[in-house]
């Protein structure tokens, strides 16, 4: 009897539609986040992360409606990220049925926001999303920095120190994305993940770079992640969630198998 490691499919949505091509041939509308979420939930996803990449603030109302629609049909934890800047944004998402929110840029701009959010809503619903990029040279002790705006803007913040600070401020979980690996299908930055996992007591979700099932298992076994997040390998049906879980279980990882 032990706590299972989690698999979390991530949906990128814009104006209430799933983007970055979910390619489910056998569902009516692969752009509908509700249908896609239900599909993942039925397939054994342990949580769903919904990332809103809607550019304009005016279209936020659509996102709240989408979250409400997903939450009415999906009975596993739902995390919403993207554009969470104020306590009011958090309240709106939680009221719509999100269980957690992921805060990224707003935390970098104003770290106290994380403290306020955790105090107001509880650490259990505050995930801090961290985009880190390796800045050390080959042969040096590895070092990562926080970047914002999809890896374009350096902040000068050391990633591991930043993660420690965010947990101290009340983050209940860290969603850690390697900007070097994101989209490469070369696997997680395992050293980054392991350093983060050793630095704090809260769970770490590894993200960025998954290209095959071995990568998922490595994330847990070598990267010491508590959960693994992936998008494209599931969206394009390269692997099913069930296959991923069975593979990880075959490597001795505790999984929730339906």
């Amino acid at each position: 009897m032990a706590l299972a490691k989690r698999i979390i499919p991530c949906l990128d949505c814009e104006n209430g539609r799933v983007v970055k091509g979910v390619q489910f041939v056998d569902i009516r509308d692969a752009g509908d986040p509700v249908e896609v979420s239900k599909r993942y939930c039925d397939a054994g996803a342990d949580e769903i992360t919904f990332l809103d990449i809607t550019a304009s603030h005016e279209e936020r109302a659509t996102t709240v409606d989408t979250v409400r629609a997903i939450a009415g049909q999906v009975f596993i934890p739902l995390t919403v990220g993207g554009g969470i800047r104020t306590l009011e944004d958090i309240r709106a998402m939680l009221n719509a049925g999100a269980d957690k929110v992921a805060i990224n840029t707003a935390a970098v701009k104003n770290p106290e926001f994380v403290r306020e959010a955790a105090q107001r809503f509880g650490s259990q619903c505050i995930v801090v999303a961290v985009d880190a990029k390796r800045v050390s040279q080959e042969g040096e002790a590895p070092r990562w920095e926080i970047f914002t705006h999809g890896g374009r803007n350096p902040t000068g913040l050391d990633a591991i120190e930043w993660i420690k600070r965010m947990v101290e401020y009340g983050a209940g979980e860290i969603l850690l994305t390697s900007m070097d690996r994101d989209g490469t299908k070369k696997g997680f930055d395992l050293a980054l993940n392991k350093a983060a996992s050793h630095a704090v007591q809260v769970p770490i979700i590894a993200s960025g770079g998954v290209g095959n099932l071995e990568h998922l298992a490595e994330g847990v076994l070598e990267g010491e992640a508590d959960a693994v997040l992936a998008a494209s390998i599931f969206h394009f049906q390269e692997y099913s969630i069930q296959e991923a879980k069975e593979y990880m279980a075959s490597k001795g990882i505790e999984m929730r198998i339906l």
Binding site: M1, A2, L3, A4, K5, R6, D46, S123, Q124, G172, E173, Q201, V202, P203, D226, A227, R256
Partner: peptide
């Protein structure tokens, strides 16, 4: 507790995720 261990592995707190109920 902060030093929660099992089989030589450190256990994260909070206890977050899917666990079995006997």
């Amino acid at each position: 507790g902060d030093g929660l261990m099992e089989d030589g592995q450190r256990l994260k707190v909070p206890h977050m995720g899917w666990n079995q109920v006997r």
